[in-house]
Structure formats: C-alpha cells, structure tokens
Amino acid sequence: MRARTRDAVFGAGALERLARVARFEPGLLVEDFAAPGAREALAAAEVLLTGWGCPPLDEAALDRMPRLRLVAHAAGTVKQHVTDAVWRRGVLVSTAAAANALPVAEYTVAAVLLSNKRVLDTASAFRRARGDIGAFEALAGAGNYRRTVGVVGASRVGRRVLELLRPYDLRLLVHDPYLDPAAAAGLGAEWAGLDHLCRTCDVVSIHAPELPATRHLFDAARLALLRDGATLVNTARGSLVDTAALTAELVAGRLHAVLDVTDPEPLPADSPLWDLPNVLLTPHVAGSLGTELTRLADTATGEIERWARGLPLAHPVRAEDLDRSA
C-alpha cells in the first residue's frame, strides 16, 4: 500500500493488534514488489496485507511470494490489484468492503433525510431572507413522512441503506437485476423495475457497481423519468450517470442532486454544478475517513486472525463474483 495509506489506516492501536496476530516488520512498507529491499520479506510472506495503492499481483509479483496464501485487503474493491494469477494459484482474498460500506450508507441516509426536508433550499432561502419566515412558504411540501425512496443496487451499501431507513415513515423501493420480490421484501423494500422506480420516487440513491453494463445507467432518457423536484443521490461511481444530461436537468432546476462522485472527478472548474443551489457536491468523502479508517484495519486484521486459527474468512472475495461487484 502507499505510505499515506498505512499512516492513515494503521495507527498505533491497529499495529498493536496486528502484532498479536502475526509476525511482521512494522517498518516495512512495500510499494513495489520488485524492490530489492522487500525480497526477503516477500519470499517468507504467507499473508499480504494490502490497501489503497497496492501494485498488481501478477505472475511476476507472485513468483516473489511462493508461500503466499492470503491477501487481506484493508479497503474496498480488489479489482485494481488482484489479477487472474491470484486465483490460479489458489490464494485466498478478503476485503474490508463491508466495513467501508457502513459510512457510505450513513452518508446516504443523511442525504435522503435532508433532501426530503429540503435543507439545501431552506438554508439558501434563510440566508437570503435573513430570517424572513415568509421565505419558507414554498417549502410547505417538504418532509419525510410517507415519502418514497428508491435504492438502485442491493449491494453491501444498498442493503445497509435499506436497513437504516427502515425505522422511518418511508416507502422503500429497490431495484437489482439479481434480486427477486421475495428477497426485496426480506430487505424491507418492494422490488421495482428501474424505470418504475425512477417515475415513483422522491429520492433515488445509486449503489450499483461500476461495470461496462452500468455506464450511464442514468442517461438522459432515464433522468427524464424522475419526477419534478426529485433528488438523485450518487455515492457509487460517477460513470453511472451521464454528467451532461444530469447537468442539463439541474441547470433547468427540475431536479436536485447530492453527488459525492462525479464523472470526471473532480468536475471541471467551469462546471455549473459548483454553483447551483439545488446541488450538493462533496469530494468523495462518503467512504471511510478519519476515525472510520480504523474499522478497515480492524476488519483486515480480524480476517488474518481467522485464517491463522483455521476459520473461514468472514469477508471472502470470490473470482466468480467480480463481474457483478464493485
């Protein structure tokens, strides 16, 4: 992993826990598998603890790690570094994606509730009116009671969002091509076709993986299905939304958006989305940051501990699932 990743994710407490689980050199950080200084450690390694910035684990890299049995990733997706060579050699792979899903879901729930409450509009009006109560008459239709919220993608994040929204007086819809109505009901939601979900919901939140099939899943035609005044929340990947088409809708004022990810990322300095009152832009912060990073370290260390004790991994990655997961 990168040095800044180690410093951010593995604080003193995390390293102490890791030391109780495995033998490792606290000062050793490998950013290049071909680096001469890492040769001896890699040759002896049974477990590779990885994070953001890990180089690809190709055949040449794995040749330097003949004893490798487990890759424990202290972050989300493993697609950037786990290659087919890992699976061919029978190396187990684990991910902390479930841990990273928690803050994303929490961010999303906050975005949903604040969007229905029209907090952005209220704050803007309050600022302009300097306290004139009459400025809030247009917000009479705001609120979360009996609103309809749609979740696109029953991923780790999507499922957690549904779980966290369940106590509220909301109608929940979910769309996922791998989910059936009975499974959706088990998540506390109604299964819906994607177009129907778009036509029906006050807030639509995207939690689908970034795949060739999901590129511009929300194109101009699908965005046009969203009801006037609806909010689109994207904490997945920017490529799932056609930025030009969404920009047109937002400039027209027909829709609202909460965007933690965009395409491109960041947006160009001249994008109108920076200044629109109906848009909340954040710099890809929905995932783990600050204190939440420790959860990633704890999850990866826990997986190493389970493997060392001969227990099944709690968060395994399977090659056959990668074509439909983040």
Score class of each variant (00 low, 15 high):
R88C: 04
A125G: 11
V112D: 04
P272N: 03
P36H: 15
T235E: 05
T294E: 15
E137A: 12
A105D: 01
L311M: 15
L255Q: 09
A22K: 11
I206K: 02
A236Y: 01
H175C: 09
A224K: 02
G90R: 09
R309P: 00
Y107F: 15
D7L: 14
P264G: 02
R147V: 00
S205H: 08
G188R: 00
D202I: 06
R306E: 03
L139W: 14
R309D: 14
R128G: 02
V157Y: 01
A300P: 10
L120M: 14
A326W: 07
V112P: 02
P268K: 06
H73N: 15
A220S: 07
L29H: 04
L29T: 15
P55M: 15
A45T: 06
T50H: 03
A236H: 04
L173C: 09
E40Y: 00
L322F: 04
A35S: 14
H284K: 09
L120H: 06
G238L: 09
L211Y: 02
A135D: 01
F136G: 05
D260S: 13
L281S: 10
L273P: 12
A8S: 13
E249M: 04
A213W: 00
V317K: 10
A257W: 02
V149R: 10
D263V: 00
R227K: 14
L250F: 04
G13Y: 01
D176K: 03
V30Q: 08
A3C: 02
P177S: 07
A123E: 12
R130D: 12
E249A: 14
A85D: 14
A97Q: 09
T301P: 00
S155Y: 08
S205N: 05
A182E: 12
L68S: 09
L197S: 07
R89G: 07
V112C: 10
V9R: 01
A44I: 00
P55F: 08
N144L: 11
L293Q: 15
R130E: 14
V47S: 08
R89T: 09
V78S: 13
R146Q: 11
L70T: 09
L311A: 15
L42M: 12
G90M: 05
D176N: 12
G290W: 08
V149S: 08
R4Y: 06
D263F: 00
T5C: 06
L187G: 05
V204T: 06
A297I: 09
E320V: 12
R160E: 15
V91F: 10
L162P: 01
A12K: 09
K79L: 07
L311Y: 02
V47W: 12
Q80M: 05
D263T: 03
A98M: 13
A245I: 04
L211G: 04
C201F: 08
L226S: 11
R64C: 07
R147M: 04
L250N: 07
G37M: 05
A220T: 01
G229T: 07
A3Q: 10
P272S: 04
D228Q: 12
L226P: 10
A245Q: 03
I133W: 08
V152H: 01
G302K: 14
L165E: 05
C54T: 13
D63G: 13
A125H: 13
A97R: 15
L197E: 07
V258A: 14
A154R: 05
D228M: 03
P209S: 07
V279I: 08
L273I: 06
V119R: 08
R146C: 11
G53F: 03
E46S: 05
R88D: 15
T83D: 04
G188S: 06
A308F: 02
P103G: 13
T108V: 15
